[in-house]
Design a binder for these strands. Structure first.
Lengths: 205, 205
DNA sequence: TATTGCATGTGATAGCTGTCACAAAACAAG
DNA sequence: CTTGTTTTGTGACAGCTATCACATGCAATA
């Protein structure tokens, strides 16, 4: 697969060195890509699919933080890679996913030698940081109904589709809520003509 | 004030260039250092005092994210500085505070030329990112009683004192809760012998 | 068709938190 | 001491959310 169009800002030398050293890898939908405490040996650039980044607590509760799509990179793996530390989050392939793995050892060189890589890393930090802030905003200031709306809109934006194919249970897990609550709130949204509901699908209007 | 002992990892050349270009500035307790939407013209290294980084919503609600103390730097100002964008958060001086302001224009050079600066920046990103994740953890997985405990412990850790001099109202604001709730929870903690309460002070046992 | 499994709907209930109203206590300053 | 201000205590109540129990509905497959 030709990944270069996804990263048009990369300079030729950078592209070359990545091509020589990076490994392409495929994950099937549902496959775990990274789990808490795991050592990071490489930084991942997403080429295709969606990766879900989430947090897990002791009791098995989950909480979705954000998605990574094509052209994006995992900020956590970058930070961890540079310092070769462990990660505090989990990553799972939401759909079939293609990633480009860049070995840790390369990171320092790339940062020093390629301005476009350096800027890409900074840009990645910034956007993930902003995303985390908006997550905090959401749970700190909003009730479940608003969080659900935010969730659905974000989902639609990320997938590019107005139809979300998920079970209520899955949404409840992502929001660390319970199925019944989500079902009830979705019903209310349907009554307000914001969505249309069917088995395993929610259509945003 | 001699700031160098706070940043022992900085190499001599870096120290010199900072001394030539940076400006030292003082903020009185309670003074606003940065507010949402403001343009960032420099990166701040904290020399003395505590800076509170928080988020504000439309309705005037606040939510504490974390504190910055001596030897630390503002990750947000770094990211924003490098890209000369605006910030999404607020910073206020919790106590009288002394900071060292490094002009934006210097950032790129420092990153390229001084390994110790580069590592400092990465380290700063990492610790702020981790801190944000633990904030998300807290509000996503824990009730107010546990969040309060976390708040008190963090406060004690940051200030180095077991006695927290604050009003219940202030705590409620930081946690985006209400005064009565905090008062009641503190009472319960007192009954469990976790704290001792007095006007404007909470002693951790 | 009958069966099985998953997804969704619904009512009852309990706990947590936010809000209002007001009382009591601690402190500061005249 | 007296007065005014700030902080804290308390009861009542309402709304949101989690949980339990169970019903219903939809889809695939034998």
């Amino acid at each position: 697969m030709d990944w270069k169009p996804l990263f048009p800002q990369f300079e030729p030398g950078l592209i070359e060195i990545i091509e020589r050293n990076a490994v392409q890898k495929t994950f099937a939908a549902g496959e775990v890509i990274m789990r808490t405490g795991q050592y990071i040996k490489s930084t991942a650039l997403v080429l295709e699919g969606q990766i879900k980044i989430y947090r897990e607590n002791q009791d098995g509760g989950e909480f979705l933080m954000y998605y990574l799509g094509p052209g994006q990179a995992c900020a956590v793996s970058m930070i961890c890679a540079i310092q070769s530390e462990t990660s505090e989050i989990n990553a799972i392939a939401e759909t079939d996913t293609e990633v480009l793995l860049i070995p840790v050892q390369l990171m320092d060189d790339l940062m020093n030698q390629y301005k476009s890589w350096y800027q890409f890393v900074i840009q990645t930090y910034r956007s993930r940081f902003d995303e985390l802030i908006s997550v905090v905003d959401n749970i700190a200031f909003h009730n479940m109904d608003e969080r659900l709306e935010f969730y659905l809109k974000r989902h639609a934006k990320n997938s590019g589709k107005q139809i979300i194919e998920t079970s209520h249970q899955q949404i409840a897990d992502d929001l660390n809520s319970s199925r019944e609550v989500i079902s009830r709130l979705l019903k209310k949204m349907e009554q307000r003509n914001l969505v249309k509901l069917n088995r395993n699908m929610i259509e945003l209007l």
